[in-house]
Simulated assay, not measured.
Amino acid sequence: MQINVNTDNTIKSKHQGLNEYVRSVVEASIERFGEHIRRVDVHLSNENREKRVDGGNYCMMEALVTGYEPVVVHDHAADLHQAIDNAGGKLKRALDSALGRLNDKKMHEPPPVEAESYKNLTSSS
């Protein structure tokens, strides 16, 4: 599984060890879903030009899930690390919900009829 961290020009030179921190949060958030996740893209920016009530630091995480549409979460916070932590928690809950629905759908589908069983059914009629 691949984790890509993307930052805008307001973040790049400011934070040492940011990539490692993001990777640790993402890995902790998706550890139980690991075999279903192909890639996680993380986008970080500081939107100080926009005066936001919930803070100018922005984190977006997009998880590419095998057999399902991408799962995307966003968070704004006054502190960049808090935005990353909050988005990680949202990602965990969103994946739990999405993969739960996917598993429910698979459980409600009838099992495939095997060719030999079908052949026996049609020949005995």
Rank of each mutant, 00 (worst) to 15 (best):
T66Y: 07
M107S: 05
H36A: 14
N4H: 12
V5R: 11
N9E: 15
L91G: 07
V72T: 12
H81M: 03
L91M: 01
K105C: 11
K90G: 03
I11Y: 06
T10S: 15
M1L: 15
M107F: 02
G100H: 05
D104R: 08
I84M: 04
R101N: 01
E47D: 14
S45Y: 09
A83K: 05
S124K: 08
D8Y: 07
G88S: 01
P110V: 05
G88D: 00
D75K: 01
L95P: 13
R32W: 13
E114G: 11
P70L: 02
N4T: 08
E69W: 09
L18W: 01
E35C: 00
V26D: 03
A83L: 00
A87Y: 03
T66W: 02
C59K: 06
N48M: 01
A94T: 04
G88I: 10
G88R: 00
Y21I: 02
K12S: 09
P112G: 00
S24H: 03
R101K: 14
P112W: 04
K105R: 14
A94F: 04
P70D: 00
N86Y: 05
N86E: 06
G89Q: 12
V71G: 08
K14E: 15
T10A: 10
V73P: 04
R93Q: 15
D85A: 14
G34S: 01
G34L: 01
G34Q: 07
A77Q: 15
